[in-house]
Amino acid sequence: MNDASDAEDRAIARALDADSDERTRAADPRVVDEYREVLGHLPIAEVSPAPDLEDRIVGAALERRAATGTTTPMETPMERKRSRVLRRIRVASLATAVAAAIVVGVILATGTSPAPVPSARVSLATVRRAQIDSLARAPGSRVGTLGAIGRVVLASNGNGAVYDLKVDTAVAVGLVSSGGTTVIGPALPRGGVIAFVVDHPERVRTVTLMRQGSVIASAALSAP
């Protein structure tokens, strides 16, 4: 075998993990990458992971390296193809006070913001129906109806929840104020509830639900 074939063999063996490290260590990384790209095109019978695996694996990853809090709203593959549109949106991160929070709010603003937008985060606490009723009865609380999808309550102390949700997939919650929209999530409803905390509830005028960047329901807040 000549040197060229030998070098090619080493690269292929490395891409296939088919030979010992000692024999393939000298393989040209560029050629190995080319053969890995070839193998990446071979057909694979895909297997859908169990639904709870994503959170478990992301949780394990975050234990190794914490997220920065700078997030871009989740995109579908189709939306990623439209990334130029998304880049027109200024995305600024909001620091969250709770390190364990898995989702942080981001501010979406088009143009200059005349007033600061509130910061918000999803609450990880389990919220029972009695607590939601209590929130709604508290002085200064406001409520709204999210079409046929659910309802929302926001108390004057900043505790709020979208509840009675008739969706079982992850949705984002938008808190609309005069300065822009604070987007929390996406998050999976737990028992039909997504609880959240916002630092300036008095600025929030409308609450929206979004899926894959599109508003699916909206509620103007008012006294009960």
Binding site: S48, E54, T70, R87
Partner: peptide, 30 residues
């Protein structure tokens, strides 16, 4: 798209990881 996504991952954007998972986990598991 891959380059933009990669920058988000390096920056610590958790949603970038979730997007990669949703796009590629079935092939990886397969």
């Amino acid at each position: 798209p891959d380059r933009i996504w990669s920058k988000r991952l390096v920056a610590g954007d958790e949603n970038a990881l979730r997007e990669a998972y949703r796009d590629h986990a079935p092939a990886v598991l397969g």
